[in-house]
Design a protein around this nucleic acid. Structure first.
Length: 204
DNA sequence: ATCGCATTAAACAAGA
DNA sequence: CTCTTGTTTAATGCGA
């Protein structure tokens, strides 16, 4: 039915005052955002979804703006997560043993700095979503898959009230860094609700 | 004090 | 009808 791909805004969630400071306080070795994503944005969340594809391109030097050559306005989008494509910014902070492409230059985060199973992860929902998607084989996930990834990797959310799922969906809708992808009808559910759930996909 | 962002809650619509 | 997904709005808290 539908899928999502990632678009681009300029400032990272972790760059935001609240979460960034918190995350950085627990992980001083986090590098500054340095990746950029080249893409175009859907005209509107309410317009028919298209099958846009995005590529990430490395940026020469630091800074916190997206440098999408095609859409200058994107640089002003405060929901940009393109820098997250430099996954080293996040993954060293949390348990993602499956990831094997971490930059060698990044220092591992001391265990004691990682959130305990009962502590709320020091990541914004945007970051969690991004990590979930990045950790998926196809770089795309259904909403349900995002929920599951978060729960699997951050046990805090196993016990947390269900409101965080609403927040996840809220972020998916609000952030232009995530794009909805419509699945091919040939791939869309057979009949069950489970398949329906899998038909909604987010990707970066 | 103000601004921007993240979080949270809630309402509502649509689809299965 | 129920559940899930998706969108939108509003309130709140925090840091700069």
């Amino acid at each position: 039915m539908e899928k999502y791909t990632q678009a681009l805004p300029p400032h990272s969630p972790l760059h935001s005052p609240q979460n960034n400071s918190e995350a950085l306080s627990r992980s001083p070795s986090l590098p500054q955002p340095a990746a950029v994503l080249s893409a175009s944005l859907p005209s509107s969340p309410t317009t028919p979804y298209s099958y846009l594809h995005f590529t990430s391109t490395p940026r020469a030097s630091g800074g916190s703006h997206c440098l999408s050559p095609s859409t200058v306005s994107d640089q002003d989008d405060l929901t940009c997560l393109s820098w997250l494509h430099q996954r080293g910014n996040l993954l060293p902070l949390q348990p993602l043993p499956k990831i094997t492409t971490l930059p060698q230059t990044l220092d591992p985060i001391p265990v004691q700095q990682l959130p305990s199973s009962g502590a709320k992860p020091p990541y914004s929902f945007s970051s969690l979503i991004f990590m979930a998607i990045e950790d998926s084989a196809e770089k795309r996930l259904p909403v349900k898959g995002i929920y599951e990834w978060i729960v699997d990797n951050f046990p805090y959310y196993k016990e947390a009230p269900g409101g965080w799922r609403n927040s996840v969906r809220h972020n998916l809708s609000l952030s232009k860094s995530f794009q909805r992808i419509h699945r091919d009808k040939s791939q869309v559910r057979q009949t069950s609700s489970q398949n329906f759930l899998n038909s909604l996909v987010y990707a970066d």
